[in-house]
Write a protein that binds this DNA or RNA. Structure first.
Lengths: 248, 248
DNA sequence: TTCCGTGTTATGTCTAAGCATGTACAGGCG
DNA sequence: CGCCTGTACATGCTTAGACATAACACGGAA
C-alpha cells in the first residue's frame, strides 16, 4: 500500500534502499558481511552521502542492517523482525469490513482498582477509577468485549463526560493523546461472562489485547479487549472468522 | 530503551519532536489543529528546515501528525496507533528470560501441501514442500510448538540441509532473508495433539502466531507457532506465564 | 605480556540552499 | 452557478559541506 505505482519515480533514497535490499536477499551480500561505506555507495549510486545515509537508516530500522559508528554497516546476523500493526478504532475495523457498527455500554461506575490492574498501570491499589464495560457489534453480532478503567485525573476535560452515552474508546483516542502506550496480545479461555456477552461457548479461545496509555499526568486508561473467537490480527490486515453461508 | 540517558544531548530533531509531542499531549495544539509550518518552526527552534522536517516526519510516522503538501501539518484527528513488536528467534526469547533453551525435531518429511496452506502462501495445491514439526523448550519445559512448511525452491542452498539436526527457525532467519513477511496473531483452543506435546490440557487457549515469508523466488516458509498458555507478546517485552513457587 | 592513550575512520547529525511536486484556492469562463 | 485552470505555497527530497562522536587499531609504557 505504501509502494508507489510502477512508473512513478521513486525517491532516490528509497530506490537505493531497494537495491541494497535486493543485494541482501539475493545473497550478493550475506549475513554478517560488511557492506561498502556510505561514501562509496554515494559514488556508486551517484547520490549525496546524506541520501545514502537515509536509505541505510531505513534498512536499519527494518532490522536488515546493523550500523555502528566507525565499525561500519553490516548485514544483520539475524534480521530482527519488527512487526508493526496499525490498531484503528473499533468502529473503523468494523466499517472497513463493510459491516455496520454498533456499541452498547454494559456497566459504568466508579470503583477502586484491584491490585492486579493497579500494578499494571502504576497507581496505588484502591485508587478510584471509572470502570466500564462495553460491547462492540458488527452487523448486530457481538464482536469485541471491552473492559476498561479510566483515570479521570489524567484527563481533566473528562471530569464530566458521561460514559453511558459515549464510545469511550473513540472519545479517548480523539481527546486524550498519550505519551506512552503498552500493548500485549494473549490468548484466554472465555470466562462464563465473556461467553454470555459474546454469545459463544465458555472456554473458547479468545484473542485478548491489553492496552494501557499514559500521558504526563499519569496513566490514562487501561483496557482489556476480548475478540470474537477466530478473529486474527495481522500485519497486513485483520481477518474475520468464517461465517456459514455468508460473505464477508 | 531507545531514549537517551538524562544529560546526554538529544539529537536536535528528536528534541524538537519531543517538544511538539508535548504541546500536543498537553493540549496546547489540539486534534485537528494546523500547526505552524516548517519554516516558522525552524525559526522558533533555531534549526534548519530539514531538521524540523525530520522531526515532523518522525511524529507523522508515529501517527500523531497528518501532513499534506500545501495543506500543511495538522495534529491527527485520531492518532493511529502503530504497535511494533520485535520478534526475535525463539532461543533468544528463552535466553533473555534467563532460562536454558532446548529444541527437538518431532517430524520432518516431504509432503504435498494441503489446500489451506497452499492458498495462504500462493503455491498450487499439492506442491511438495518440507513439512516439519518441532518443539522448543525453556528450562526443559515445552514452550513453543512449531509446525512449519518450507519451500526448498525458494532457497537453493537449502537443498541438502538436514532439518533433523537443525533449528529451522534459526537457519532460515540467518540464511534466507526475505522481501516480504506476513504475520498474524490469533487464539486457538489446544487440539489434542497440541495438548500432548505442550504438556497441557486439551482446549486451553493458545496464542498462535502465523508467519509466512517470501523472497524473489517465491514463498520461503510458513509456520504456525503455538505458545505455552499464558504467554503474552507485548510491545515492550514479552511475559511468561506465572509459575508456582519459582521466580522468573 | 597487558593496559592505556591517541589517531583514524565510518556513521550521526546538522545546515543552507535549491528544485520538485501535490494541492488548495482564486479567478475566469461558460 | 458550476466547472475548469493557473498559480502560489507547504511539504518532499536532494545536495555539498561541515563538525560530532563512537570505536577500532596501533603503539608505547608499565
Amino acid at each position: 500500500m505504501n509502494e508507489k505505482q510502477a512508473g512513478a519515480t521513486l525517491p532516490k533514497a528509497r530506490s537505493i534502499a531497494n537495491e541494497v535490499r535486493r543485494r541482501i536477499v539475493e545473497g550478493e551480500w550475506r549475513q554478517g558481511d560488511r557492506i561498502p561505506d556510505e561514501a562509496d555507495l554515494a559514488i556508486e549510486f551517484n547520490a549525496a552521502r546524506a541520501t545514502v545515509n537515509k536509505a541505510l537508516q531505513l534498512l536499519a530500522d527494518e532490522g536488515l542492517l546493523d550500523r555502528r559508528r566507525r565499525a561500519g554497516t553490516r548485514v544483520a546476523l539475524d534480521p530482527v523482525r519488527k512487526a508493526t500493526f496499525s490498531i484503528s478504532i473499533v468502529r473503523e475495523q468494523v466499517e472497513q469490513a463493510g459491516m455496520t457498527y454498533g456499541h452498547r455500554v454494559l456497566a459504568q461506575r466508579d470503583s477502586p482498582v484491584p491490585e492486579k490492574i493497579a500494578s499494571r498501570i502504576g497507581l496505588p491499589e484502591g485508587s478510584v477509577l471509572v470502570h466500564m464495560r462495553a460491547l462492540h457489534y458488527a452487523d448486530g453480532r457481538p464482536f469485541q468485549l471491552e473492559d476498561r478503567w479510566i483515570n479521570r485525573r489524567a484527563v481533566p476535560s473528562l471530569a464530566k463526560v458521561d460514559f453511558w452515552q459515549l464510545n469511550a474508546n473513540e472519545w479517548l483516542v480523539r481527546n486524550a493523546p498519550y505519551l506512552r502506550a503498552e500493548l500485549t496480545f494473549s490468548a484466554e479461555n472465555a470466562t462464563r461472562r465473556d461467553a454470555r456477552l459474546l454469545n459463544i461457548q465458555e472456554g473458547q479461545a479468545l484473542l485478548v489485547l491489553h492496552r494501557t496509555t499514559w500521558n504526563d499526568l499519569g496513566p490514562i486508561t487501561t483496557v482489556r479487549v476480548a475478540h470474537q473467537p477466530g478473529y486474527l490480527i495481522g500485519t497486513e490486515k485483520n481477518y474475520w472468522p468464517e461465517r456459514q453461508g455468508e460473505d464477508a
